[in-house]
Computed example of a mutant assay.
Amino acid sequence: MLQFILKRLGLALLVALTVSIISFSLLFLSGDPASAIGGETATDQDIEAIRVLYGFDRPLVVQYWDWLSSALTGDLGESYYFKLPVASLIADRLQITMILGVCGISFALLTAVPLGVAAAIRPNSFIDRLALFLSVAGQAMPSFWFGLILIVVFAIQLGWLPPSGASSPVHFIMPTIVLGYYAMPAIMRLTRAGMLDVLSSDYIRTARAKGASEGRVLFKHALRNAIIPVVSLAAVQMGFMLGGSIVVESIFALHGAGYLAWESIARNDLPTVQALILVFSLFYIIFTFLSDVLNAWLDPRMRAG
């Protein structure tokens, strides 16, 4: 197991290095950063002064090394628009996005996995058709529209929930439902398909023939194997929720890291955009690494492979 973890950790570090190079390159692929900072009214002399001030006149390799060295120490530069250290700016906003992401994936898993298991146990039944309906509706319904519907019904008409803000746990109920519901269809379908495949296996029939209880067969033998691809999918969905929560955060006025990304792009705040891309990518890498380790613990064959 330790050898497997070390191999996956080495691969994760290589991917992180590649992501850092791509993240740094995006600063220059979007155009001349000095011109973007100076704006449309800047003269050639102003742009050249900005280029020297921020070190854009140095070789790219030197700029990348300085940026990477500073990033490893927690220094991600200074925001052009907010005039604050990017690291502290992201740290203040990331807490909201992390809470929303954890709540969203928890809601998706706690809802989709039981529904997928129940649908696999009783195929073509009412619960199976209900799971299919929720799956199709989740894919077809835009998250911004679903969020607005929840605000109109539960905040404006019924007055049960606050429509915006993040000052209390109650404020996260509707954003959690919207963000989690988007991830439910894929998790539910994968759980159902995995359970149907596992329940038809020989070792399941053998366990039942030996007199094992139905609960033991379902949860110890069947679900343990069917849940492996769900773990990998949940890791990807969690990374998406952190990086792609901009729509939900905008609708419910949650000023998290997703909303900060939109603000930074709209205002050409290049260091903040660069840092956010790196941070969100690192979250994807971390969650993928953890899912690989968990899957290896669930299935020893992965460690042998």
Rank of each mutant, 00 (worst) to 15 (best):
G138E: 00
F126E: 08
G101T: 12
L132F: 13
G116E: 02
L190C: 05
M98Q: 11
W160L: 13
P162S: 10
L130C: 13
L190V: 09
A131Y: 01
A186F: 14
D197W: 11
H171K: 05
I177G: 00
V170F: 12
G194P: 08
I149C: 14
N124H: 14
I156E: 13
A131N: 03
V117E: 03
M98R: 10
M184Y: 10
R129S: 12
G104E: 03
G194R: 08
R129L: 11
A183R: 04
Q139G: 13
L134D: 01
Q139W: 14
G138F: 00
G101I: 04
V113H: 00
D128S: 08
M195W: 04
V113F: 01
Y182K: 15
T176I: 07
S201R: 14
D128G: 11
F172L: 12
T97N: 08
A207F: 04
Y181M: 02
L110G: 11
A137W: 01
L115P: 04
G147Q: 03
S135L: 07
I187S: 00
V136F: 02
A193M: 11
I204G: 07
Q139L: 15
I99M: 14
A120L: 10
F126Q: 10
I177F: 05
I121Q: 14
L115W: 02
L179M: 10
T176W: 02
M98E: 09
A186L: 15
S143N: 07
P142I: 06
P185Q: 04
I121L: 15
S143G: 03
L132R: 14
T191Y: 07
Q139K: 13
M188S: 05
L199V: 04
G165S: 12
L110K: 11
V113R: 00
A119I: 05
V198I: 13
F144D: 00
G104I: 08
L132I: 13
K210T: 01
R192C: 01
A193H: 09
T97Q: 03
A140D: 00
M174Q: 06
P163Q: 09
I151H: 00
V117A: 07
V152T: 14
A193T: 15
M98A: 15
V102E: 08
C103N: 15
V102K: 08
Y203L: 07
T206L: 11
K210W: 05
V198Q: 06
Y181K: 00
A209D: 05
P162W: 12
F172Y: 13
I156P: 09
S168V: 13
P175Y: 02
V178F: 02
V136T: 03
P163F: 09
R122D: 06
G138T: 00
L196M: 15
V170C: 09
Y181D: 00
I151Y: 01
R189S: 06
I204W: 05
L132K: 13
P114F: 02
